[in-house]
Every structure is written in structure tokens, then in C-alpha cells.
Amino acid sequence: MNIFLTGATGYIGSSVATQVISKGHQVYGLLRDKGKADAVKALGIIPVVRNLG
């Protein structure tokens, strides 16, 4: 299953993402800061850099 997650760089968002990834799902994470893309990639999250504001 593909999952889109906001708050992927936060404590709760990254924790939820790693649990979901461990169950075999693919997670796309919303990021506002392009500089954090490498950190979420390391967790297995596919970064989506956008600003919703």
C-alpha cells in the first residue's frame, strides 16, 4: 500500500512511518525543507518537498 504522510520529519511522523514501512508499505513523506530529504530517505521514506502554505 502507498501511504502519504505529513509531518514525516517529526518525532511522531517518523515513528509511524518506520512502523508502516516495516509492515511492507511504501511511505511518501511531506517535507517543507529540502535539506531534510536525506534524513528521511535514510528511514526509508520517499521525500516529497512542497510547501502547503
Rank of each mutant, 00 (worst) to 15 (best):
L5V: 02
D33P: 04
V40E: 06
V48D: 01
Q19T: 10
G29A: 11
G13L: 02
M1H: 07
K23P: 02
V49C: 04
G44I: 13
A39D: 12
Y28F: 15
S22D: 15
A17F: 05
A39I: 15
Q19P: 00
V16E: 01
D33I: 04
P47Q: 09
L31W: 11
L5W: 05
D38N: 14
I21K: 12
G24W: 12
L30A: 04
N2H: 09
A8M: 09
A39Q: 15
A42M: 06
G35F: 03
V49R: 02
I21S: 09
G10C: 05
Y28Q: 01
I12D: 09
I46C: 00
V49Y: 04
T9H: 04
G10T: 08
D38H: 07
S14K: 13
A42S: 15
L52F: 13
K41S: 10
F4P: 00
R32P: 03
V48G: 01
Y28E: 00
V20Y: 04
R50P: 00
Q19W: 00
P47T: 10
L31C: 09
V48K: 07
T18A: 07
L43V: 04
K36C: 05
L30Q: 02
L30I: 08
T6A: 13
L30D: 00
G53C: 01
L30F: 10
I3H: 02
I46T: 12
G13A: 05
G7F: 04
M1A: 14
M1E: 09
S22L: 09
A39R: 13
G44Y: 10
D33N: 14
G35T: 12
S22T: 11
I12N: 03
G29Y: 12
N2C: 01
S14F: 03
G53Q: 12
I3K: 02
L30P: 00
G13N: 05
T6K: 04
G13E: 04
A17R: 08
T6N: 06
L30R: 02
G24M: 14
K41C: 08
G29N: 09
G24S: 12
D38W: 00
G35D: 09
A37G: 06
T9Y: 02
Y28C: 01
A17G: 07
N51P: 00
